[in-house]
Computed example of a mutant assay.
Amino acid sequence: MKTKFVILFTMLLISACSSSLQVPEVTTTLSPTRTITPSPEPTSAAAIAPTPTGIQLPYNEVQESSAYCQSPYAILAIANAEGLSKEKIARVLVGIWLERYKTPKAHPYCRIEDYRVDDIYSNPKVNATSLQPKGDFMRVVKFSIKLIQVPTDWLAFPGEIDTENWLTVIWNISISKLDDNYEMVFAYP
Rank of each mutant, 00 (worst) to 15 (best):
D153T: 15
P158Q: 13
P108N: 03
Q132R: 12
S71D: 10
W97L: 02
N181R: 14
L98S: 04
V117A: 08
E64D: 12
S18N: 07
L147E: 01
I161K: 11
F186P: 08
L147D: 06
D162F: 13
T3H: 12
Y109R: 06
R91Q: 11
S39Y: 01
A106R: 00
V141D: 04
S71T: 01
I175F: 04
Y115N: 03
M11P: 00
S130W: 01
C17N: 01
N123W: 08
I120D: 06
F143G: 03
P133S: 11
S18T: 14
D118M: 09
K86Q: 15
P58W: 11
I112T: 00
P151C: 07
L12M: 07
L84V: 11
D179K: 13
C17I: 11
P124K: 12
N181C: 03
L167E: 08
Y101G: 14
T163G: 15
V6M: 08
K86M: 10
S71Q: 09
F9N: 07
I75Q: 11
T51P: 00
I175E: 07
G159Y: 00
L21W: 15
Y59E: 10
F143Q: 06
T53C: 08
P58F: 03
L178S: 15
S71R: 09
I48F: 07
E160H: 00
V185N: 12
D114Q: 01
K105C: 00
F157K: 07
V26C: 05
E41N: 10
Y101S: 01
K4R: 12
R139G: 09
P24S: 10
Y182A: 01
V26T: 10
P58Y: 04
L167A: 05
F143A: 06
D179Y: 08
D179C: 03
A156H: 06
L84E: 08
E99L: 08
A90Y: 05
L155K: 14
K134A: 10
P133H: 14
D114T: 04
N172F: 05
